[in-house]
Computed example of a mutant assay.
Amino acid sequence: MKRLYYLTDKIEFAEHISQELTNNGIDAHHIHVLSKNEAGVVTHHLHGPNLFERNDFLRRALIGMVTGLIVAIVSMFIAKYLLGYSFTGLAQFALLLLIMLFGTWLGGFIGFATENKHLNRFHDEIEKGRHLIMIDVKANEERLVHKIVEHLNEADFSGEDKHVLI
């Protein structure tokens, strides 16, 4: 899937675009609106992004897991070859798992406090009161979405991301 981003000045435009896309076969659950006016998103029957789309939890948790794995391996190397300690296989596995889980937890904790890296580029526009429409499309729907939104002339195309997982 691919995610298309459009910015619009009025929440009513976002609602109109969402209705037109839904009427033309785009699943309403693939259309999300990020706005400073969260009450307006609900009032206009729009879907806001979920928690994982708003913050960088998954990406940071993965980075924390890999960092924890590297720290655990380096720690065991230092303990064995520089300090002379020896570990059994089970102790090595437990230490590796413990440090890796701690890294994952810490990375996820940081990720909850961090804005999603894909949405960070729109931060200033959203703070100014604009509304970001995010549309997840399959390859065969992309041209239709562009055509509909361009025809309505209520939003500006602002970019895309390929391989959207969430």
Rank of each mutant, 00 (worst) to 15 (best):
E53C: 09
R54P: 05
R54H: 09
D56W: 00
D56L: 00
F57P: 01
F57Y: 13
L58P: 03
L58E: 10
R59I: 12
R60W: 05
A61D: 00
A61C: 10
I63T: 07
I63H: 00
V66E: 03
V66M: 10
V66F: 12
G68K: 03
G68L: 06
G68F: 04
L69G: 15
A72S: 14
A72N: 02
I73Q: 06
V74E: 05
V74N: 08
V74S: 10
V74L: 13
S75I: 07
M76N: 09
M76D: 04
F77N: 12
F77K: 03
F77E: 07
F77G: 14
F77Q: 08
I78A: 12
I78E: 05
I78C: 10
A79W: 01
A79P: 03
A79G: 12
A79E: 06
Y81M: 04
L82D: 11
L82Q: 11
L82A: 14
G84Y: 04
G84S: 04
Y85I: 10
Y85H: 08
S86C: 02
F87Y: 15
F87C: 07
F87H: 06
T88W: 06
T88Q: 08
A91Q: 13
A91N: 10
A91E: 14
Q92Y: 10
A94R: 09
A94P: 10
A94Y: 08
A94K: 11
A94T: 15
L96N: 14
L97G: 09
L97V: 15
L97S: 14
L98F: 15
L98W: 11
L98N: 11
M100N: 14
L101M: 13
F102K: 03
G103C: 11
T104F: 05
T104Y: 06
L106R: 05
G107T: 02
G107I: 00
G108T: 09
G108H: 04
G108S: 08
G108V: 08
F109W: 06
I110H: 01
I110Y: 01
G111L: 00
G111F: 00
G111H: 00
G111A: 02
F112T: 11
F112M: 12
A113G: 11
A113I: 09
T114C: 00
T114Q: 02
E115D: 03
K117Q: 10
K117T: 15
K117R: 12
L119I: 13
N120W: 09
N120I: 10
R121A: 13
F122V: 08
F122L: 06
F122K: 02
F122T: 03
H123G: 09
H123T: 14
E125L: 07
E125C: 07
I126M: 08
E127R: 14
E127T: 15
K128F: 10
K128I: 10
R130T: 12
R130N: 12
L132N: 00
I133P: 01
I133C: 04
I133G: 02
D136R: 12
D136C: 09
K138I: 09
K138P: 05
N140P: 07
N140I: 13
N140C: 07
E141R: 08
E141G: 04
E142Q: 14
R143A: 15
R143S: 15
R143W: 05
R143V: 15
R143M: 13
V145L: 07
V145F: 02
V145S: 03
H146R: 13
H146C: 10
I148R: 01
I148C: 01
V149P: 00
V149Q: 01
E150S: 14
